[in-house]
């Protein structure tokens, strides 16, 4: 494992923990897209089914369990514990427009036409667009709390670091996975507009808006 992969994983973990703590500490999930969080729970579930079939390392298993656990905990906080604070009226992105095409694509373009591999591919494709309901919500309300922008920053940074990891692996290990790379590039591009705003107006501002 190289440093970019490790910092990518830690950045991903930071994003997940930041969001969980924010909701827990403020007892509110205002401004958070429950739909994006359901999609991420679906992403982790469909990708980490190999927990049941193969063991790779203690690190690998631990991180997967934490990711899945946190994803469902977040969904639980939004849709059950702090449901009253959930801003459903602004969380109106039609997720079927993501899940259905992504599901179709996973059937058509994959490494191996087997259930686990199709589900893995589905999770890779879905992850690349899973943040769209959240970005849509921010563009609709015209603002995001600072802590939400930190969450988005670390979530975007994670896939950007993975891109560098894949370049590294290609040069030093001769390894590349075209499905993960293309989806990872798409995923990172979706955050570019946000990254720009985060860097240029993030510091010292309490709110950040994404133009529609």
């Amino acid at each position: 494992m190289n440093i970019f992969r490790l910092t990518g994983d830690l950045s991903h973990l930071a994003a997940i923990i930041i969001l969980l703590l924010k909701i827990w500490k403020t007892r509110s999930c205002a401004g958070i897209s429950g739909k994006s969080q359901i999609l991420f729970a679906l992403v982790f579930t469909s990708r980490y089914l190999d927990l049941l079939t193969s063991f790779i390392s203690l690190y690998n298993t631990t991180m997967k369990v934490i990711y899945i656990g946190c994803a469902y905990a977040t969904v639980y906080l939004i849709y059950a514990k702090f449901k009253a604070t959930y801003d459903g009226n602004h969380d109106t992105f039609r997720v079927e427009f993501l899940v259905v095409p992504v599901g179709g694509l996973a059937f058509l373009v994959n490494h191996d036409f087997s259930p686990l591999e199709i589900l893995w591919t589905f999770s890779i494709y879905l992850e690349s667009v899973a943040i769209l309901p959240q970005l849509f919500m921010i563009s609709k309300t015209g603002e995001a709390e600072t802590i939400t922008t930190h969450y988005l920053f670390f979530l975007g940074l994670y896939r950007a670091l993975y891109l560098i990891n894949w370049i590294w692996r290609f040069y030093f290990e001769g390894f590349f996975d075209m499905i993960a790379i293309v989806a990872g590039v798409v995923q990172t591009i979706l955050y570019c507009d946000f990254f720009y705003l985060y860097v240029t107006k993030g510091e010292g501002r309490s709110q950040l808006s994404i133009p529609t």
């Binding site: 494992m1 193969s54 790779i56 390392s57 990711y67 490494h111 990891n165 390894f175 996975d177 993960a180």
Partner: peptide
């Protein structure tokens, strides 16, 4: 393409 190598990533 080695699937086990790929699944090492999260």
């Amino acid at each position: 393409d080695d699937p086990s190598q790929k699944k090492d990533e999260l």
